[in-house]
Amino acid sequence: MNFKNKTQVTIFKFSGLSEDELLTPFLFMFFFLVYMVSIFGNIGMMTMVHISPSLHTPMYFFLSFLSMVDLFYSSVTTPKTLSDLLSERKLITFIGCALQFFFFCALVSSEIFVLSIMAYDRYVAICQPLHYISVMTKKKCLCLLILSFSVGFSQSAAQTSSLFSLDYCESNLIDHFYCDIYPLIRLSCSETLTCTIVALFFVCLCSLVSMTTILISYILMITSILGINSAAGRRKAFSTCSSHLTCVVIFYVSVFCTYFHPTSSNLEDLEKVSSAFYTMVTPMLNPLIYSLRNQEVKKASIRLLQKKNN
């Protein structure tokens, strides 16, 4: 009888973003700059919402939490990735890998639900403007956020428990630059069907709930906007949700490119590129998009700069 070596792996090694040593300095400088812009952009957005009375509305309350989630979930992977770009040994402990996956999965799921809440908020603002204040109360906003984070962290706990209950007894090389579910499943030497089903269930459930909420909200919003008689009124109504729609499209396109593609060794580099985009670049883009496309944020920024100069 052939017995396999069942010694459990205690340390994982990442393959990294690229094996090209000439490309490494460029990647480090690029993603370091992206991370710095992400930190200052998201902290700046949270600070602006907090100190600007004109932004003390549900829409910007949710935006400040979106910035907080972006800041945290990019920080779960980016510092380690930057460190690994400068190191020959790209190592992480079993516990460290589990913690990285848990928080990353929880925060990404929370972001999905926060984007859904923001779509619902825009629906109420455009389709039920006279009832907006009575519908989007502080208590309701807090309850929606608590629900989002509770679901996000609960499903992450289930996925983490399932994934790190697998046996890792042969190779310890994760063909990725952070601990993600599919590279770890491919690495396992035990039966992975149950773990794969759990992962697909929660990924599909969270995505479908979020996308259904966003799609229904935007269908109702577009119908309402098209019913506005004046062109100026339609432009103003659409401008209130264009920033959010842009963020949603960028986020979901990068996520789908990462997780919903045929399994092939030829697509592994594409998986890394799309993962790098949505783990490091997307958190930087969200505050920039709202700063450049949202008139209220622009006005608040100008008022703060004028106060500082005075």
Rank of each mutant, 00 (worst) to 15 (best):
C241R: 03
I225R: 05
Y218N: 13
L187K: 00
K138T: 12
F153T: 14
C141F: 00
R234P: 10
F202D: 02
M136V: 07
K140E: 10
L208K: 11
I225Q: 06
C241D: 06
S148L: 05
T196V: 05
V249M: 15
S161M: 09
L130V: 05
C179E: 05
I117Y: 02
I216N: 04
I117P: 00
S188Y: 04
E191W: 04
S190T: 09
D167V: 09
S217T: 11
K236R: 13
I174D: 04
I222G: 04
S188M: 10
S239W: 08
P129T: 01
C127S: 06
V135R: 12
S165H: 15
C206R: 10
S154D: 01
Y218V: 02
E170K: 13
L187I: 09
A125D: 05
H244G: 14
L193E: 13
S171G: 06
Q159I: 07
T212I: 10
Q159A: 01
L144M: 14
L187H: 02
Y132C: 08
A231Q: 10
S242N: 10
M136W: 12
S161N: 12
S154I: 11
L163V: 03
I126H: 02
F153H: 08
V203K: 13
L200C: 14
P183A: 01
L147V: 08
C127A: 07
M221I: 15
I126A: 02
F177T: 02
D121F: 03
S239F: 06
T223C: 15
I126D: 00
G233C: 06
A199S: 13
V248D: 05
S230G: 07
F149H: 04
M136L: 15
I197L: 12
E191D: 15
M118V: 03
L200G: 14
I222N: 13
Y123R: 10
V249S: 12
S150D: 01
S224C: 11
M118Q: 14
Y132V: 06
A158C: 11
E191A: 10
L163N: 00
I146Y: 05
E170H: 11
L173E: 06
F201P: 02
C241P: 00
F164A: 00
Y168V: 01
A157K: 06
V209K: 03
F202Y: 15
R234E: 04
H244V: 05
I250S: 08
Q128M: 06
V203F: 15
D121V: 13
K236A: 13
L173Q: 03
S224W: 05
C169S: 15
C206F: 11
S150R: 02
L184A: 00
Y182N: 08
Y132G: 00
L215P: 02
F201S: 11
F202E: 02
C127K: 01
L245R: 09
P183N: 02
L193K: 11
Y252D: 11
S116I: 00
L144I: 06
S190V: 05
I214A: 05
Y218G: 03
L220E: 09
L200P: 02
C247W: 05
M118R: 14
Y120W: 14
S165W: 06
S171R: 05
N172Q: 00
V124P: 07
S161I: 07
C127D: 03
I133F: 13
T213Q: 03
G152C: 04
S242Q: 12
N229S: 14
T223P: 08
V124E: 07
